[in-house]
Simulated assay, not measured.
Amino acid sequence: MNQTILRDDGFSARAFAQRVAAKGHETLSVDHGDHLLNPDLDALIAATKLREAAVLIPIVDHGDEAGVILTLRNANMRKHSGQVAFPGGAIDPEDDFQPEKAALREAHEEIGLEGRHVELLGRLPRYLTTTGYSITPVLGLVHPPFDLTPNPDEVADVFEVPLSFLMNPANHRRESRIWQDKERFYYTMPFGDRFIWGVTAGIIRTLYERLYS
């Protein structure tokens, strides 16, 4: 029986791509989301008509140490304003209802990342949210050199976080707050003055559990 052997190249883009090739297509039918930390949300999510969306998880090839591009959403956005997010948005008919096309289009619209710099690797399982979205995270390697031009209507800032930081479970904090009179749990991953939490942290945690745990 043939098996893929994982080489330990640390947190390089090449090592990431190898992990995706080895594990990236397993159990895509198993949804992740807010309900995993809060099982009573199953019924709420099941009763909600979810809108299909996609985000790009951009892994930048810096040689031995890959980075992950994240955005800070504009404070005037209707949903998730002022939060750290991956570039992404709703899957539209112009995307032929394909998550990969939507993720690349949104990344170009939001931060000016051209698709020719992105090597698509695969997907993570859908991430279901209590805000009404079924999000497909699309994995892509970003090959320098490239230029980014944030759309000021949507993005306040663009920054990178080392992949090694995000894939270190010691940096994953399980926190809670009271929402609708119940304690709700979620992950946070503070990085300097950036506070990564909510859906974005949940997707990062899914990436860790799928490829690195």
Rank of each mutant, 00 (worst) to 15 (best):
M1L: 10
M1N: 11
R7A: 09
R7D: 10
G10T: 05
S12R: 00
S12V: 01
A13F: 02
F16W: 06
R19L: 05
R19H: 05
V20K: 04
A22H: 08
K23N: 07
H25P: 00
T27H: 15
L28D: 04
L28R: 05
V30S: 14
D34W: 12
P39E: 11
A43F: 11
T48F: 04
T48I: 07
R51H: 04
E52Q: 15
V55N: 07
V55Q: 03
D61I: 09
H62Y: 12
H62E: 13
G63S: 01
E65F: 03
L70A: 03
L70P: 00
T71I: 15
L72K: 15
N74S: 15
N76T: 14
N76D: 13
K79N: 04
H80N: 13
A85C: 11
F86T: 05
P87T: 12
P87N: 11
A90P: 03
I91F: 04
P93Q: 02
E94S: 08
D96Q: 08
F97M: 14
F97S: 12
F97A: 10
P99K: 10
A103I: 08
E106V: 03
A107R: 04
E109W: 11
E110R: 14
L113C: 13
L113D: 11
L113A: 12
L120H: 14
L120D: 07
L121W: 10
G122I: 14
G122Q: 12
R123N: 13
R126S: 13
T131S: 09
T131R: 14
S134P: 07
T136W: 14
T136F: 12
T136Y: 13
P137G: 09
L139Q: 11
G140E: 11
V142L: 11
H143M: 12
H143Q: 13
H143S: 09
P144D: 05
D147F: 09
L148G: 01
L148P: 06
P150A: 00
P150K: 03
N151A: 08
E154P: 03
F159T: 02
E160F: 02
V161T: 02
P162E: 00
P162S: 04
P162H: 02
P162F: 01
L163I: 00
F165T: 00
F165Y: 15
F165A: 01
M167K: 05
M167C: 08
N168F: 01
P169Q: 08
P169Y: 04
N171F: 01
R173T: 06
R174Q: 10
R177G: 04
I178N: 07
Q180T: 02
Q180G: 02
R184A: 07
R184G: 08
Y186M: 06
Y186K: 03
M189W: 04
M189H: 01
M189I: 13
P190Y: 05
F191P: 01
D193R: 07
D193S: 13
I196T: 05
W197Y: 14
I203D: 07
T206H: 10
R210Y: 12
L211H: 10
Y212K: 06
S213P: 06
